[in-house]
Design a protein around this nucleic acid. Structure first.
Ligand SMILES: [Mn+2]
Ligand SMILES: [Mn+2]
Ligand SMILES: [Zn+2]
Ligand SMILES: [Zn+2]
Lengths: 141, 141
DNA sequence: ATGTAAATGTAACAATGTTGCATTTAATAA
DNA sequence: TTATTAAATGCAACATTGTTACATTTACAT
């Protein structure tokens, strides 16, 4: 994950989000954390911030598909950067995005795994689905 | 789903939750709704209630495994009764519990489907996992 | 450089969740 | 049945989280 401003500015531009200094600060914190972070952690990581502007920033980032929510039962809501799309140098395919919560270190991870077999629910048409797994992470084993 | 008080009282007893009139009222609303409901809906469905007691009731129900949370990205938190365990008369096996959000009628469903193939994440040990699907439900097709 | 729509900061407010404590109640023992 | 006791409740006061309105500032296209 790159943290430089040029990269972050490009991220905003790609998603048609106006570049402001505050949005770059928020994006910097998100970029520095590989794993999903809570609003609480985000606020503590920002040097100075206006609470209302932060809410609006998060809403904008969510609406424009720059970040996504990570909801694990019993855990506080977290957010994480969406993974970058394929480009000329780097193609990611046949991978399924899952959320993993480690019951030992309490950390939440966004993981890309080999595509799991299609889920079928009789008489329902599925447009998308999410998987949240709990267990013991790589580092804690 | 049975709604009678004898059944609800048994539910509480089985989970070692003290029987009180307020808890029976909450349980009644949950029993009357097959699908997960929001706190907001629950509050509006209770004849009279104390907000603080309601929070504590929900916490107790969650802790004792009588209800479970249903978290869908972008939707408000919902709760639903846990399905009844197997007993002498009725055995349920090889079914996986999934949450389905209908993008048309905006309803959330708890569904039991044929067991999906095991999900494997390299170097992680999975104790449990949840699936949240979005699409069009049975009724809306 | 200028115009304009978007973003920000301030304030006031609304909704949601928590804690302490005195009173009431349910479950248990006598 | 009654007495005992730990749990649940209701109230108040508080803390956290999220929203709205509006005047000011800023980004960005012309
Ligand atoms: Mn993720
Ligand atoms: Mn469910
Ligand atoms: Zn871990
Ligand atoms: Zn539907």
């Amino acid at each position: 994950m790159q943290h430089c401003y040029i990269y972050m500015k490009k991220l905003l531009k790609n998603k048609k989000i106006r570049e402001t200094s505050f949005r770059l600060e928020v994006l910097k914190v998100l970029s520095e954390n590989e794993n999903p972070i809570s609003m609480d952690y985000l606020e503590q990581s920002l040097p100075k911030f206006d609470r209302i502007t932060l809410y609006r920033t998060i809403k904008t980032f969510l609406d424009k598909g720059l970040i996504h929510e990570v909801l694990i039962a019993g855990e506080s809501k977290k957010i994480a950067l969406c993974s970058v799309e394929c480009n000329e140098e780097n193609h990611i395919h046949h991978l399924e995005h899952v959320h993993f919560f480690c019951e030992n270190c309490k950390e939440t991870f966004c993981l890309e795994i080999e595509k799991v077999p299609t889920i079928i629910i009789p008489n329902h048409s599925i447009n998308s689905f999410e998987i949240q797994a709990k267990g013991i992470c790589q580092n804690c084993k």
